[in-house]
Amino acid sequence: MLGLVKFFSIILIFTCGFGSALASERQFNLGAIASPAEVAGWDIDVRPDGLGAPIGSGNAFDGEEIYAERCGFCHGDFGEGIDRWPELVGGEDSLNSHDPIKTTSSYWPYASTMYDYIYRAMPFGEAQSLTIDETYSIVAYLLYMGDIIDDEFEVSNDTIGTIQMPNKSGFLLPDPRPDVVEKSTILCMINCESDTNVIGRARDLDVTPENES
């Protein structure tokens, strides 16, 4: 009898102690466990709260030179954008105008996104060739040009999650659609209200590529 009680208590301890592990037991035995080093090599994302930001830092003073060398060719020395390449700073107070200019300083809600994107995808065609400190420095230079930090501010894994972007509160959640809803449940089929005057023709704009064949 004593033995039976002991047996039950062992099961109980086992169930409590490893409950969550049992709940997610592998079902198919496919794939391999990733080592911490393997994960570290690919886990490059940085979240708004700074989670994932690698240890390092940089300021605008360092960033100016790196930016000129690695970024300015497309984005211009002052982030103004060359040809069709994107403007990176400026455009404040343009978002409600006829020609909104969306830049890091006018539109981007999080500085973490700048680090994340520049490190993962820039310079265009040379992805992940910047060092961690170079990336922090470029972020700092852009934030400095956008009047968001001063030239002595160290952008780092400790500070990237604390920087307040001007348009942080400019985004609406959740998605309010469907935002256009028919008032009547029965759709009009005959003699409906409709504007039938032609007020614009794509042909007149003449921006459609020629059909070569």
Binding site: D45, N96, P100, T113, A121, G170, F171, L172, D175
Partner: peptide, 19 residues
């Protein structure tokens, strides 16, 4: 909140806010 879901695939409204 990556670049594509903040600066790109967000929908600017008339008042300057964005969905």
């Amino acid at each position: 909140l990556t670049r594509e879901e903040t600066s790109k695939y967000t929908d600017l409204m008339t008042d300057g806010s964005a969905r």
